[in-house]
Each structure stands twice: as structure tokens, then as C-alpha cells.
Amino acid sequence: MDALNAKEQQDFQKLVEQKQMKDFMRLYSSLVERCFTDCVNDFTSSKLTNKEQTCILKCSEKFLKHSERVGQRFQEQNAAMSQGLNR
């Protein structure tokens, strides 16, 4: 494909920014969904118990670290592939 010119690149950049925002919101809601599902199972009270809260925080931290690590590795794989170093 021909490279985009500067004006097209600007338009494309805008598109990517919107996608990033959307994706980010999606990532966030999947974080909430996962950690809520895994940590909160007791509905005898409307308040989060201490245990649930700690679990949610630990779960979120782990989720973020997972995303970060996958992102790093994904980039590395892509870089390696575009250099043809990969097997």
C-alpha cells in the first residue's frame, strides 16, 4: 500500500485516537466484570466486605500487569517478525 500523505496521516491518527478511547473503555469494563465476578459472590449485604475489596484491588492490579506484559511481548513479537528474525 502507498504510504499515507501528511493530511491522510492526520485523519488516520484521529481515527486511531477514537479507537484507543473506545478500546480503553472496553478494557476497563472487562476488568470490572472479571474482578467483580471472581471476587464478589456474597449478596447478604449491599456493602463490599473487606475481603471482597482487597480481592478486587489485587485482581485489578493483576489484570493491569497482565495487560502491560502482553502488550510488551506483543510489540516484541511484531518487531521480531518485521525484522524477519523469528524462526
Binding site: L27, K65, S67
Partner: peptide
């Protein structure tokens, strides 16, 4: 897809005793 799949495959769902991986 990778993000989701590897989360399912690698991150244990019981307990979350530790925030670190």
C-alpha cells in the same frame, strides 16, 4: 484476542492473594 485468551489461560481465578504476577 491475545489479551483475552492469555488472561483466561494464565491468570488463576481463585483467590487473588497477590497483586503482582
Amino acid at each position: 484476542n491475545i489479551l483475552k485468551t492469555c488472561l483466561e489461560k494464565c491468570i488463576s481465578r481463585d483467590g487473588y492473594g497477590e497483586g503482582d504476577l
